[in-house]
Design a protein around this nucleic acid. Structure first.
Lengths: 224, 224
DNA sequence: ACGACAGTTCGATCGCGGTCGAAACATCGT
DNA sequence: ACGATGTTTCGACCGCGATCGAACTGTCGT
């Protein structure tokens, strides 16, 4: 009975249905208020508040106070990655996959993962960015090439941002089981997709649905 | 309150201290009996048995009955990956990192991850295998090159095995945050390291410690 | 066939943690 | 300054599930 890092503590935080629903909702990447999360989890406000403080204490969440609103968000991409890993196991193990409903199908095509795009579209995009040498593999890292830097600035995407987060990161896709693009660049691309109205976020879901013309535009810019 | 895959169910299975200890012990890759796991978790036999059936029902474990012994093991590398992801978060979040004890240091250098080698040594090895073009990156997959195939057969490692598992897989290292080699090849290499007595498994730990001569041999064969 | 060992099932106990209503607290609009 | 809205704290309730001892089932030795 060795004592490693307190894995049971972390897992039990995710192990409560109410908290799991909250975390799942936050996987959308947008920070939410306590009331929104209470609704999402299907519990009363006091209950939600209690759960949220536990998640905070556990280090899974960050808090941004804005006036009388308190926005909760996932603490890190690492936490998001852990949750995707758990989702992956639940998917694989669950006997629920009788028929993948339309919503699940949409999720497989394109969805939000924390703050960037995931799903088949995202995986295809990363492949093409490598093919076009806009991104380069190094070790298991991803680096922006000089041509990539100019290419993205031409699209109005700033790649100079000097946040702590890396510009490019690989993130494993639970549906496709291959990597897609995370990091500030991945986040910026998702921002552009939404800003240009090429796609919209499905209500109450992580799914991202492209409009017909939006898909064409996206494919022209990122999949050509 | 959407209903995705039952993530809370999976997480709560890992969320109990006794079960977490069991799973942690099984991360060593060797299947263990119910009594061994009871000892490992610090609970009585009936309690352990109850936990084990829950883990079985949850699909996290496999069972191999051999006479009056029943060997429990992790169900899949995916489950192992999920647990490593949780460990990663617990490590990052835990305020316990006062001083990394010697055991933790050993774990960082080399340890067992399910059935293959992880840690700094394993990450270095994968880098060198790429440099020597014995393995090739494709997409985010890893492929064995023809020279690699002959190289490994010369070492007495069969790379033709046609199991369902891929020969090569990348597995993310929680200590180094880079990938190491999993898959049947990764497992075979670990087998060889142990069989040649280059290193031994630390008692009651996932740590792998190389002997002086063993380390030289390992470096000559895999890190040269 | 018998006893020893490995493991599971049963039954009862008990405490931790999730739950909500009411009240307290904080911050905004006006 | 006041009421309205968003959020946390308090207190009490309640149930699920973790736990273990005892009994039961199954398998191996001899």
């Amino acid at each position: 009975m060795r004592e490693g890092p307190d894995i049971a503590r972390i897992a039990s935080l995710v192990g409560d249905p109410a908290r799991a629903n909250m975390l799942n909702a936050l996987m959308g990447g947008t920070a939410l208020t306590a009331s929104e999360l209470a609704l999402e989890a299907g519990v009363s406000l006091p209950t939600a508040s209690s759960h949220l403080s536990k998640l905070m204490e556990g280090g899974l969440l960050t808090l941004a106070s804005q006036g009388r609103h308190r926005y909760y968000g996932l603490a890190s991409a690492q936490v998001a990655g852990m949750i995707e890993a758990i989702i992956g196991v639940a998917e694989a193990v669950g006997p629920k996959r009788v028929r993948p409903g339309p919503r699940d199908a949409a999720m497989r095509v394109a969805r939000v993962c924390y703050d960037h795009l995931a799903g088949e579209q995202a995986v295809a995009m990363l492949d093409r960015l490598f093919d076009r040498k806009l991104l380069l593999r190094e070790d298991n890292q991803i680096r922006l090439s000089s041509s990539g830097a100019s290419h993205f600035s031409a699209l109005g995407i700033d790649t100079q941002a000097k946040a702590r987060r890396p510009v490019c990161r690989a993130c494993l896709d639970w549906s496709v089981r291959r990597s897609h693009l995370a990091g500030t660049l991945g986040a910026a691309i998702l921002d552009k997709i939404i800003a240009e109205k090429w796609a919209r976020r499905e209500k109450n879901s992580r799914a991202v649905v492209f409009s017909p013309t939006g898909r064409q535009a996206f494919e022209r810019v990122f999949l050509s």
